[in-house]
Write a protein that binds this DNA or RNA. Structure first.
Lengths: 221, 221
DNA sequence: AAATATTAATTAAATGTTTAATTAAATTTA
DNA sequence: TAAATTTAATTAAACATTTAATTAATATTT
């Protein structure tokens, strides 16, 4: 007669701990690899519980995945609320605030990209709308406005200009594993802060409507 | 007794066609989803042949994958050879040539990132070294040199500056599925060409050592 | 006929899910 | 309060399905 280890009803609310452990393990795995590539057994082993717990608490592997994504998106939306409001969003504000969000959720761009790449149609649109729609229109408005006012040079396309700023902000996090391999050290807050200031300087020097810029259109190369 | 359709030795060299079809189908699938998430059945069906053909021609799923990656990397290295040589690689040269490579291989950044994210240790290092090592050091040299010469402003970190240019060039391709969902149209050569010129203008205006830039350090926001 | 190419059927391993047994806490009853 | 019962949580094992790989039969070309 084998003895089961640790079975039975736990004291107080400890049952919720298993659920939370499963969520944590699921997050670790699903943020890195896509749904089909992760097995329930792997997740359960990571969480240190039996695989059947996934079905007990979440109904199915799919259910666990959806719960985990939900939690993820909610926490992200909470962070994104910092750049909330209805007013225009300046490039500087965006860069600083979004970098802060990315420091807290460095996995986010990779995950979104993977999801969008796999999904299609309405499901894809919803995902993109939910997280690009939150800031892109207001960032665009701010840039267009500055171009109209003559603060930014008027020979740059506002859409491409916005894309540039997003690229400068997001790419380092997307390429994190590559950069860390190249540089040999991982991105910390200090490096991120330097990066933000670098980007803002570069962007504004390039985009501000200064006489010296306009006549410098022919480049050195 | 069921009748097999189309079995037997094909005319001429048509056998190689099956092999090539399998490679094509494998590329389409593996560029989008990771190894474990793609089944041999899917690939074979895409190629319009029986699944056993994978084992017949490539020994195993793993074998097909490796053959496909090999072909992929070779073709990419051939493209990358355009920005070959030992001399310094100017930012403009890099941007134009690498965008050309990306237009021919738009899947590439996503694939590399996924591979690097999944792999680790030596395997990861080799992958990164093979494709970042090809141009990064020479791009870096070019930037450092221009800073030393006073052509570029000397208050920007050369590493971050290189990162900026790579971000501007690569990000639009990484985010392709997102951008296409947002914009409603896909990236063609004409848009890419405008993007390149935009990036070069923005970068150089921001980075050139002009008096107007240096005194413009305090920004409008 | 011999060699080659292709396929359907089969096998073995892995995976998501379900079930039944077991344990322990909580609740009820005497 | 002590015993009995119910409820919840957890596990090991089984079950059904999927999947990669293998095999044997079949068809075609030379």
């Amino acid at each position: 007669m084998q003895r089961r280890k640790n079975a039975g009803r736990p004291a107080g609310n400890e049952g919720e701990k298993v659920k939370a452990d499963l969520m944590d393990a699921a997050r670790r795995h699903f943020l890195q690899r896509e749904f089909k590539a992760v097995s329930v057994r792997e997740i359960a082993e990571s969480a240190g519980v039996n695989g059947a717990m996934v079905n007990y608490y979440f109904g199915s592997k799919q259910g666990l995945y959806m719960a985990m994504v939900d939690e993820l998106l909610s926490s992200l939306e909470a962070s994104l609320a910092e750049l909330g409001g209805d007013e225009a969003l300046s490039v500087t504000e965006f860069s600083r605030a979004y970098t802060q969000v990315l420091l807290e959720n460095p996995w986010w761009p990779n995950f979104l990209l993977r999801e969008v790449l796999i999904k299609e149609g309405e499901s894809r649109n919803a995902m993109v709308a939910r997280f690009a729609g939150a800031f892109a229109p207001r960032l665009m408005a701010s840039i267009s406005c500055k171009i109209r006012d003559g603060q930014y040079r008027d020979d740059l396309d506002p859409g491409l200009t916005m894309l540039s700023m997003i690229a400068l902000t997001v790419f380092p996090f997307l390429a994190k594993p590559v950069l860390e391999t190249v540089l040999g050290r991982d991105m910390n807050e200090e490096i991120a802060a330097r990066l933000v200031e670098h980007n803002i300087t570069l962007f504004h020097s390039g985009v501000l409507h200064a006489a010296a810029n306009k006549e410098g259109d022919e480049h050195a190369d």
